[in-house]
Design a protein around this nucleic acid. Structure first.
Lengths: 223, 223
DNA sequence: GTACCATTCAAACAAACGTTTGAATGAGGT
DNA sequence: ACCTCATTCAAACGTTTGTTTGAATGGTAC
């Protein structure tokens, strides 16, 4: 039926992926039409369906080609930490660095479209589209599981559920820092400098402060 | 031309707004069609255009009716704090409570659709749609300006740009906590309890820890 | 040189989109 | 009783959507 060669990437495929990535950030997944993509990529309208099958498959591939590599790097860093610790405890700050570091580095790569993609990823975490959610969850499952386990081991005195929540909060803060800076102009004109390479130490400091914050009390009824 | 009465809200208007709010959360703004909205609201297709003009105006009204009240409550709380302090310093934790407290309370109101709306709001912060961004920015401008000013005054020893960033991070963490819990199943099956009333103390503790974190050093080149 | 096959292309497809229209409806004021 | 006017309704409007089709194109292998 449809079996495009995969050993050699014709330029068309990459051009489509790059154009789609850019347009998805500018207009969102739904608001980006096939015609917009093929026009910017300078290819024929039918090329997307020929190379990727459907628009959904194209979306999936836009994420997959970057995410696989990102999470591979994260897990490699974690492997290094665990090997170096040799069964001993790992400092939480190192774990955070291993998880959020690669993301922030990718977010500051403006030459190969990494920053574009990270903006896209940040705003797609809250995407309602069912198949995108499903796909992202699968792509992240392993990395999140591993890093949660590492944090549990690094902070044995903190309840696991608390760590779980704080990891969630940290991902939120990071995604917004990357995706939301120019996306929403809530802080318009207030940031001198939104370059991820520059705010990385700020963010890491914030995340670590949040992770280490004293445990709150949990009344049965708030207020 | 088009001047519907505004002193009395016919049921149709509210039914449309409620249905739209729900569907926007489920499918996103673009993926929700007029026909889906009117079908769920049980009204005629033309009713939306009659009552709101265009789909964009409807979107705007969905946000406006809740946001105006939310930010009014936030500013009222801040007014109280500033009056009580009488020119003296206000504890940062109180300021955070005044800003994020009302949002979390609205997020736990499942009876009047408040939680639905807060999920919608959380994921709309990163919405690429130009007119939505513009509108949200205007709606938030006053509150953000006031609260930033209050934090500057409460933490005079912290550089303003640092506070700005941390406020951004805090908004990100909060939005995710509200919008991302069930939206993306990254943490699927891991949360026992996603009720906002229950995670509020957790989040507040995390935010305060992040706000108070030691300042990072800023090397000219990271790594 | 010719047969093959992946790729490109212009054109068309049905379906769904937001919006408009003009007639029907029905409660309220005079 | 009659006029008024906000509201509802079924139907249609012209666009745009993602996808499909069948013919052209052009390099590679024999």
């Amino acid at each position: 039926m449809k079996a495009p060669v995969d050993r050699v990437l014709p330029d068309t495929r990459s051009r489509i992926l790059d154009a789609a990535e850019l347009l998805f950030v500018e207009h969102g997944l739904d608001a980006t039409s096939m015609r917009m993509i093929t026009a910017r990529a300078g290819v024929n309208l039918a090329a997307v369906n020929y190379h990727f099958g459907t628009k959904d498959s194209l979306i999936q591939e836009v994420f997959r080609r970057r995410l696989t590599e990102l999470n591979r790097r994260r897990l490699a860093e974690l492997d290094r930490l665990e090997a170096a610790a040799g069964g001993g405890r790992i400092k939480p700050s190192r774990i955070l660095e291993a998880f959020f570091g690669p993301a922030l580095e990718l977010a500051s790569d403006t030459e190969n479209g990494g920053s574009t993609f990270m903006q896209l990823l940040g705003r797609t975490y809250t995407e309602p589209n069912a198949f995108v959610r499903q796909f992202l969850a699968e792509e992240f499952a392993e990395a999140i599981g591993r890093f949660l386990g590492a944090l549990y081991a690094a902070l044995p005195e903190v309840p696991r559920e608390e760590i779980l929540w704080r990891f969630h909060f940290m991902m939120g803060a990071t995604s917004y820092a990357i995706a939301g800076t120019d996306a929403l102009q809530l802080f318009a004109g207030r940031f001198d400098d939104a370059d991820p390479t520059r705010f990385k130490p700020r963010l890491m400091s914030f995340l670590l402060g949040g992770l280490r914050a004293p445990l709150a009390e949990y009344p049965d009824e708030a207020r």
